[in-house]
Design a protein around this nucleic acid. Structure first.
Length: 424
RNA sequence: GUGACCAUAGCUCAAUAGGCAGAGCACCUGGUUGUGGCCCAGGAGGUUUCGGGUUCAAGCCCCGAUGGUCACCCCA
């Protein structure tokens, strides 16, 4: 029985890493540009932390999607299913609320949910996560959205737009939910079974139904944005105003709700193409009560989670090629024991000088070594043999045009550097 | 957790009507002295996902398990 990855877990192979480095490199670059500082929190945390952040209505809790086990000391611990709870814990634990506001953090790493895998959904996936803490200005919501948008834009995506909604706050949302529930109870007989369940467990969830019958009912259903309190309405209007000024494309989607219950006011997603049913490239929103819920002072916050696997899938679907990864352009070949020792030394000198280089291993025929050089895709094969060494030169073969010339060993480094345009 | 479809070499796929498991690509070696690609020859690589059953005979038919894909649920 051969080993294989667990269900829903994937290897990222070298041929995929051009995409990953492209996306992650851009994420880090943009975080720097927007003034976000990097933070890493543990993959494993006390289970209670995640339960508190998620509350009861979330599927992660309901459907036992947490990877949990009992640690040796009896503590129940879990692999993190999302970033925000851990970051909030770190924020409180290290008294980061005493830092100059706002505190802007980003993190990159794997998350784990025991779900049934399908297109764009895995049990382990990597997220780029950004959080802006201690600021309730709608311009903060905008900044988080702009960070996400810039990432997609600079990666070369076309035609993406935000799905945007406001789901109110603890002041105005309860009244809205009451209206919503009342509305659906009036149409209870036409409501499909799945949505009856959602209505009981998490009424807002009915809004993003896929049932035809419910969709028809939603035409007339009360909308959250029509039931916002004064503060929430102003916040939402400021945000859309800023989005207009920056010309960031968005549509107001009254049916947009989010999986985590801690969101207030702003919620948004960006949808990608060719991702099947799992079309959210990122999801985020405002979570003003969250820091408090993990034992910290009342602190407003906005954040976004961006799925790297989905971006990579979407890049491929849109035919966007990442820049090629750098690879050595030189291989040192050799004939004879003395020449091989010299080749080992030369390869080392090249690398120490910052010039990527490969060494032909073994003591095979020149033909075989050239074949290796060809397959490694190098531009130059540097050939060392007794004959050359006696005259203090190396034969450099250009693998592209098949030309060869002798270069004095003393000047080889600078010769190669010049040809490959590597700054010294 | 529910449902549908699928599973043959590292990859992409063949294998009449149940009748000796194959090709292309990739990989290794060779085509004589110190020269890659193209070409030619050869080689390695399989418990046909696994376990049962039917049959003289199963990659093929039946049952079960596992895994994959897609959808629901939910979400990045």
């Amino acid at each position: 029985m051969r080993f294989q990855t667990l269900k829903g877990f994937n290897d990222i192979l070298p041929e995929d890493y051009a995409y990953w480095r492209f996306v992650l490199g851009k994420a880090v670059e943009l975080s720097d540009r927007f003034g976000y500082e990097q933070i890493d929190t543990p993959i494993l945390e006390a289970t209670r932390l995640f339960l508190r952040g998620l509350q009861e209505g979330s599927a992660i809790v309901l459907d036992k999607e947490l990877y949990s086990f009992e640690d040796h000391d009896g503590t129940n611990v879990s692999l993190r299913p999302e970033f925000t709870a851990g970051v909030m814990r770190a924020y409180v634990e290290h008294g980061m609320h005493t830092r100059p506001r706002p505190v802007k953090l980003f993190a990159i790493g794997p998350l784990f949910r025991h779900e049934k895998p399908q297109a764009g959904r895995f049990r382990q996936h990597v997220q780029f996560n950004a959080e802006l803490l201690g600021e309730e200005d709608a311009a903060a919501d905008l900044e988080i959205m702009q960070l996400a948008y810039s990432l997609y834009h600079e990666l070369g995506f076309k035609g993406l737009q935000f799905q945007l909604n406001s789901i109110g706050c603890p002041d105005c949302r309860p009244a809205y939910i009451e209206k919503l529930v009342a509305y659906f109870q009036n149409h209870h007989d036409t409501l499909p079974e799945v949505d009856r369940r959602r209505l009981r467990v998490n009424p807002l969830r009915v809004l993003d139904t896929k049932e035809e019958a419910t969709l028809a009912l939603l035409e007339e259903a009360p909308r959250a944005i029509d039931h916002l309190c004064e503060t929430c309405r102003e916040h939402f209007e400021s945000l859309t105003g800023y989005l207009d000024v920056l010309a960031l494309p968005y549509v107001i989607n009254p049916r947009l709700v989010r999986g985590f219950d801690y969101y207030v006011r702003t919620v948004f997603e960006v949808w990608g193409e060719e991702l099947g049913a799992q079309n959210a490239l990122c999801g985020g929103g405002r979570y003003d009560g969250l820091v408090e819920s993990v034992g910290g002072p009342k602190t407003p916050g906005v954040g976004v989670g961006i799925g790297i696997e989905r971006i990579v899938l979407s890049l491929k679907a849109q035919g966007i090629e990442p820049p090629a990864l750098p690879r050595p352009e030189i291989m040192t070949l050799h004939l004879g024991a003395e020449a091989k020792t010299r080749a080992v030394l030369l390869t080392s000198e090249l690398r120490n000088a910052g010039i990527p280089a490969l060494l032909a291993f073994g003591s095979r025929s020149l033909k075989s070594q050239l074949k290796s050089a060809h397959r490694a895709g190098v531009r130059y094969a540097v050939i060392l043999a007794e004959d050359e060494l006696a005259r203090g030169v190396a034969t450099v073969r250009d693998m592209v045009d098949s030309s060869q010339q002798e270069v004095p060993l003393s000047g080889l480094l600078s010769w190669l550097r010049q040809r490959l345009e590597i700054p010294s």
